[in-house]
Structure formats: C-alpha cells, structure tokens
Design a protein around this nucleic acid. Structure first.
Lengths: 341, 341
DNA sequence: CTGAAAGCGCTTACAG
DNA sequence: CTGAAAGCGCTTACAG
C-alpha cells in the first residue's frame, strides 16, 4: 500500500491560505482583511471576503488563540446555577457575547472563595479574552491573579468606587434599606429579617435593614434570623414558622430572597396566619411566581438580565481596548409593592 | 533603545519544553508522560510529573487543540436556560466534565431547529471533543453535520432504538401515560391535558395521555388545551381558568409541566375551586416548590441531574474511544403522588 | 521505550 | 498598503 507522500496531517479544512490563494493575496493580507484591520485596500477586502464566503471559511479558534495569545473565551464565575438570578445573568451575557464571536464559559464557585481561586487558575491558563466575576469578596491571590493576567474583568451585582475596577450592579445595601423603609411606612414596628445562605450580598442587604431600623430606633437583634443553609422555598416555610414561634409579636418579615418569602407565604396559608393582616411579608429579586402567590408578594425587582447585558457590553469595549466613560454602572432596583405588605 | 535580539513573542509561560528540560527528557516524552500515554518508562513519568508540578506547568489548550485537531470543549445544546430542567442538566454535565479537563459550553436553541443548525455549524468549527444535544428533532443538515464531523454525540432526554445513536433519558410517552393512568385510578373520567410550548417532548407526553384514555374509551379531544406560548406559572393560571370555563365538567387536569400546574393550583385557590375535590391537578418534572404548594402537587419526578451525569459519563467514554455496553440508557421516572390528586 | 523533524493554522514583528 | 519569515506550544508520524 502506497504511503502518503508527505507527513501532512491536513484536516481537510478550508484554511486562510486557501482563501488567500482564491483572492490572489498573501495569507497575511487575507488575515488582516478578515479581521477588519484597517490599512488594507478596499478592493482587496472585498475580494478576500467574497472568497471566504464562497469557500465557507471558518477561522480556527485554536490557531488564532495560539498565535495571538488570546482566545475568544469569557469565563463567567457565579456562585450557583440553582439560583435563577445567576442563570438570568449568564443567559444575558451569552446572548450578547455569542454574536460577537465570544464564548461564555460556565464557572460555578458554590460560594467558596477557594473554589473560585482554583477555577480562576484553570481558566486563566486558557488565556481568556475577558472575565466576569460575581462581587468583590475573593481571596487575595485570586485578586492578584486577575490583576497580573491583564485580562479585562468586570464585576457583577455589587457597586464599588475603587479606582480602576469595573462593575455593573446596584447597591444591595440601599435595596435592603428601601424595602425595610417600605415596611415602616406600612406602620410596622416589629420588622424581622430572615435570611439564608448568608453570602456577601445577603449580608449587605442585612446592613441596609439594620441601618434603616436604627435610624428610627426600632432595631432589635432578636428579630434577625440567619441560616447558613441554601435558600429554598421549603426553608422559607420553616424559618417563617420559627420566627413566629420565637417572636410572636413580629408584624413584618423581610426575606432576603423571594424563594424564602414564597415559602413563608405558603406556611402562613397552611397555619392560617393572615398576610398582611397579622404579619406583612416582603421578598427580594422578584422571581418567577411571586406575582402569582396568594397574596401576591411585595418584593424588590433586581435588574439581573440588564446586569448581564451591560456587563457583557462593557467587557466587549474593554476587550477592544476602547476607553470607557464610566468604570461602574449602577442599574438600580425597583420596589414592587403588591398585596403581601 | 536596544531592540530585542530575537523575534520571539514568548508569553513568559511555562511550556512543555521547560518541563522536559527540567526532567532531562525530550518534549515528546514529556508530552507522553503527562498525558498518561503508555509506553513511557515509569521512572521518566515520575520525573516529568514532578518537574511539571514544581514548575506549575499548565498545558496550553489552544496549542493542544491545534496540534491534535481536537479541543476540550463540549457544547451542550439545550432549548432554554429559563427552564430549570435544562439548567439542572447543564449543571450536572459541567460537574462531571470539568474535573476531567473538559469544558461544557452553553448552546441555547430557543426550540428553533434553524438556530440549532447555525449553532452546530459554529461549534463544530471549534473542533469540539464531544457534543450533547437535546432530543432527536433537528434539521436534516444538522443531523448530517454531526455525523460527518465524527464528533462523539449523546442525545439527551428522549429514548430511541435507532442503531449507532447514543442517548440518555426516559420515555416521555410512558411518563404521560403513567400519570394519566393514576388520574383514572383516582376515579376521574373527564381528564384534561393542558400544555404550553408544545415542544417534541411535550407532544410525546400528550401522546401517552391520549393512548391511556383511548385504552379505556375516555379520550375526548375537547379536553386538550394546547398553547404554543412559553410555559410559566402565570400562563398555567390562565389556562386553568380557561379549561374550567369551557369544560365545566372536567374532573382532572394533567399539566405538561409543573410551572403550569403550580399556576393552576394558585388559580384554583383564588377562584375557590376545591383541589382535588372538584378537580384533581397533576404536573410534570417535580420542580422547586411543588412539594410546598397548597395542596402539594402530584407530579412525575424526572431524573434530570442523573441524565446530565450519565450522559457526561457516556461521552467521556466515547471521547476516550472506549466501547460501550449500551448505546441507550433509560433512567426512568417516578410517579410522585401528593395531595392534589 | 525514546527522540528529531515537521506540522497544526493562524498572527506578530519587521521590512519595504 | 503588502508580504516573506518566524513563531505561538503543542502532537503526529516516522525512525530507530
């Protein structure tokens, strides 16, 4: 059997050289024309693009990454996928980046800084084009790795005024303050805070809650119920019962997340406790179903899809090396008053 | 200012050559040792691995992909991220693949075969290591592209007996049949089917529903309410009301998904319709909150995390070129009877 | 069991 | 504005 004449390992793929040959230019020129680099004669650009289309040329991302030392990958580091909040962010990021040829990569940290650091180490070795991370709480060496990599990085969900740091989010503390103030406006005086997971953003909301109650002299640490367990509808039901049992005079509860609040509402129904008659209930995030509960749930609508979109757009600009008008984008939040308060 | 002596573009990265040099072997041997290719002396393997660890060597995925014509990427094509079902699958896939060095990539098709085909075209150009796709309904050219690529592919959620096709899932039709039979066992005679989205798997459940009712001569097309809109709690509430208005004698409703069923339960409460007294309600998938509703929701628990894990493991074997005992894995489903029926 | 050479398909740095 | 040469960091195919 005859051996192949050369040692070529051709994949049968249409390469840049094929396109260049068809267009009658050098591969370098073809490369420049295709990437839209300026300084190529218009006519050549036309010829190259036509040839590429005709041959069905698709650039090889691996070759491009190796030569340019930069891939099209954008890791998105979020705590969990089981929280619809982060799925919405990830979905929006993917929707914006994909048409620009960038690939959003899933990174799940499980609220664990060490896991995040390990993930960062792995992803940074892939020479990502950009990076999206949740919040600001991370290990010192994670922080340094990001800085040392030189990879553009945008922080999600929280705000900071630190110089040279890019972020898109809203003030978690202000949001916690706002919904607490709403409860006070409803003439409530024994306002509880019930939380799970106890991640940094939850604790920032707690801070807003405390600040608000302290301003009017109604803060009572007994009214805080903090569980490190993962947030869920079922846990919300349990914590609701526990709160009413241990603090029978509570007249309002601010749950740090809607799933907990929905569980609380369901527990109230089961126990025959009038909402908002005996106790007002408020949630956070306006998740699916909150507008359908009985009674419908008062909550804070958070702009998670917008955060995903805006952070992706900001990253796009940074990856292109464009200057930004603002390092931080505050997308705010919206108090959504319904029947439960 | 002195020019750099060479044209090197070194990234300052620790490369395979550094490791090889430190271990006193050639780069080829180092490569083989690190990849666990057999045929390398044990002692050398030890030396190379020690050197790699000591230098903090991380292989460059782009270089590896270019040389081997195969990346570590595994696109996972799912209809939507807003359905918790697919998030659970994606999460499980990622959990299994990541520790093996593979990267799960998000691909959202929005239930659109053309969009899926376009996505496939893009992803296949990235030389994926493997491919995970949802179900079997796709364009003919999508099917051909997958086959022609030679990339190992596992199909999710549904079963087939087609030869040479890999799948992990359960029989959607059997599940639809099973829950309908349960409703009949509860002495219901006017059993309705309410569905949204109308994707292939929903329609397979519909087929199971029809088959079951036809077997006992109780099938009535008037009792089917099919909406092409996206599934949601709110839509479930609307469809529940519509069903009871147009078919007042209905005594059971099988909703094709739990979010619809939860909406139905909420609507029933709002309207003062007794469940299961006047009408029994069943859902599908056992989503978050179904066990907390009032009444708690009877449903079919589907093994979505297991599907993600098993499909990832099957793909891992295929990517290693291992032979499989079975082309298809049926993970079944579990009827979960609660208060609503 | 080990290695020198070539190649994967691009882009960078330099020259003209 | 365009191009010939070199290089990115690996693995394949071949030889011994």
């Amino acid at each position: 059997m005859p051996r192949p004449e050369t040692r070529r390992r051709s994949s049968g793929r249409v390469t840049l050289s094929h396109v260049a040959e068809a267009a009658g230019v050098s591969p370098i020129t073809a490369s420049r024309a295709l990437r839209g680099e300026r300084g190529v004669a218009d006519e050549l650009v036309q010829r190259v693009k036509a040839a590429a289309t005709q041959l069905g040329y698709v650039p090889d991302p691996a070759a491009r990454a190796l030569a340019s030392q930069r891939s099209v990958q954008v890791p998105v580091l979020v705590p969990l996928l089981s929280n619809a909040l982060f799925v919405d962010v990830l979905d929006a990021v993917h929707r914006i980046l994909f048409p620009h040829g960038y690939q959003a990569l899933i990174g799940v940290t499980h609220y664990d800084p060490d896991e995040e650091e390990q993930l960062l180490r792995t992803y940074l070795a892939h020479r990502p084009a950009g990076l999206l991370v949740t919040g600001f709480d991370r290990t010192e060496s994670a922080r340094q790795m990001i800085a040392a990599s030189g990879v553009p990085c945008v922080h999600l969900m929280e705000m900071t005024s630190a110089p040279g740091v890019y972020c898109v989010g809203f003030s978690q503390q202000d949001a916690g303050h706002r919904i607490t103030a709403h409860l006070l406006e409803r003439s409530r005086r024994r306002v509880a805070f019930v939380a799970a997971q106890l991640d940094p953003r939850t604790m920032q909301r707690a801070e807003g809650y405390r600040r608000c109650l302290k301003e009017v002299g109604l803060y009572d640490p007994q009214l805080e119920l903090l569980s490190p367990q993962p947030s869920s509808i079922r846990l919300g039901a349990e914590l609701f019962e526990q709160m009413l049992r241990t603090q029978p005079d509570v007249d309002a509860i601010f749950f740090c997340n809607d799933d907990l609040a929905q569980g609380g509402l369901l527990a109230a129904q089961r126990l025959g406790i009038a909402v908002p008659g005996r106790v007002a209930v408020a949630g956070f995030n306006d998740l699916a179903g909150s507008d359908q509960m009985l009674p419908t749930l008062t909550t804070v609508r958070t702009p998670r899809s917008s955060i995903g979109e805006a952070s992706a757009r900001m990253l796009l600009a940074l990856m292109r090396g464009e200057a930004l008008e603002h390092n931080s984008v505050n997308l705010g939040f919206e108090l959504t008053v319904r029947e439960s308060t």
